[in-house]
């Protein structure tokens, strides 16, 4: 207990330190890639809870991201000036109040997303596999078209002049919170319930697990973090457009989850980082960039069908084990389970 508390304090302190130094150390382009890495980690790990751990195939994550992004942006844009009117100025008080209001609107965006996640999770009582997938895809597209038709949040023009509140600290903080939250829930009895829904729904039900409950819960939690990620995204770019939330974005997140390994948190993190950096790293080859990207994707999937990490997790002990040669056994076990 105490150890965890100390660890959290240290982690937050390190993040604040890095967040303060980093913008001065790297150029804005690299900085933006780092921010996007963090946002994509949040997205990939939260989707992994739905797709990887609970086995509910969802390709509507961009829809949840859009709801969270637009909700929190609408709050800071319309409500922000009124709430923060008393502490206007450049002082420290204004900064703190602004950041506090930002976090509240991020959480509100996450909550709005979670409600949507609940609504999308409900059909999963009746629908399975690909049918559920296509409903989540349809939901994402309906959200996109709906936003396109709401003029108050920009409609087809896009939502402009969103205040820039997102800092490296908040991006890294929420990425960390998502990872720790999903890790903790997966190592609890709830986590085993999620896994049992994926492995065999009927057997899980026979053992008295309320599978409906867990499926909807996975959607609600996953959607919440996707909504927060959307809020971070909007308050970083200061601009939101529905073109950022097409089904291609949902596919992108699904690719991260599958490439990292379904049901591996560290796998999702690694894949999110790789897939964010790869298109940027390929910029020198100009128009062949996306051709190489997609060819690499096909090659990676054929070379490692179970994803980069399969179902294993990377941890410090993995590296220690590698040195002793003991990891081979656990690797073999992991590979067998992945099949």
């Amino acid at each position: 207990m105490l150890k965890n508390a100390i660890l959290s304090v240290v982690a937050v302190a390190v993040l604040i330190g890095v967040g303060a130094v980093l913008p001065r150390m790297v150029n804005p382009y690299l900085f933006q890639i780092l921010i996007l890495c963090g946002i994509n980690i949040t997205l990939a790990v939260s989707l992994n809870l739905i797709n990887g751990f609970t086995g509910q195939f969802s390709i509507g994550h961009a829809g949840f991201m859009a709801i969270g992004g637009y909700t929190s942006a609408a709050l800071t844009y319309y409500l922000g000036p009124h709430v923060l009117a008393g502490v206007a100025g450049d002082g420290a008080a204004a900064t703190v109040a602004g950041q506090a209001f930002f976090i509240l609107s991020l959480l509100a965006g996450g909550a709005a997303s979670a409600v949507a996640g609940f609504l999308v999770g409900l059909p999963s009582l009746r629908l399975r596999g690909d049918y559920l997938a296509i409903v989540t895809l349809g939901f994402g597209e309906i959200i996109r078209v709906a936003i396109l038709n709401i003029d108050a949040i920009g409609g087809a023009r896009g939502f402009t002049d969103i205040p820039r509140y997102t800092t490296f600290f908040w991006v890294a903080f929420f990425a960390l919170v998502t990872v720790v939250f999903v890790r903790n829930i997966m190592s609890s009895s709830h986590g085993r319930a999620f896994l049992s829904v994926r492995e065999d729904e009927i057997a899980a039900e026979a053992l008295g697990i309320n599978t409906t409950n867990y499926k909807v819960m996975a959607f609600v939690i996953g959607a919440f973090f996707a909504g927060v990620a959307g809020g971070l995204f909007g308050h970083y770019l200061m601009y939101l457009h529905t073109n950022s939330f097409t089904f291609m974005k949902s596919f992108e997140v699904v690719i991260m989850v599958v490439l990292g390994g379904m049901g591996s948190i560290t796998g999702s993190v690694i894949a999110a980082v790789i897939l964010t950096i790869l298109p940027e790293a390929l910029r020198p080859v100009k128009e062949y960039r996306m051709v190489i990207y997609s060819a690499l994707l096909i090659f990676l999937m054929i070379a490692r069908p179970q994803g980069l990490l399969g179902m294993r997790e990377l941890s410090l002990s993995t590296f220690r084990g590698l040195k002793l040669g003991g990891a081979r056994k656990s690797q073999a076990g992991g590979a067998k389970r992945a099949l």
Binding site: N51, V258, M290, V291, S294
Partner: peptide, 20 residues
Amino acid sequence: SPRLTALITAIGVSLLLENL
């Protein structure tokens, strides 16, 4: 392989054809 792997490959092929 797992079905999702083939699905991601299909998305990859789709991206490849579009960009080619």
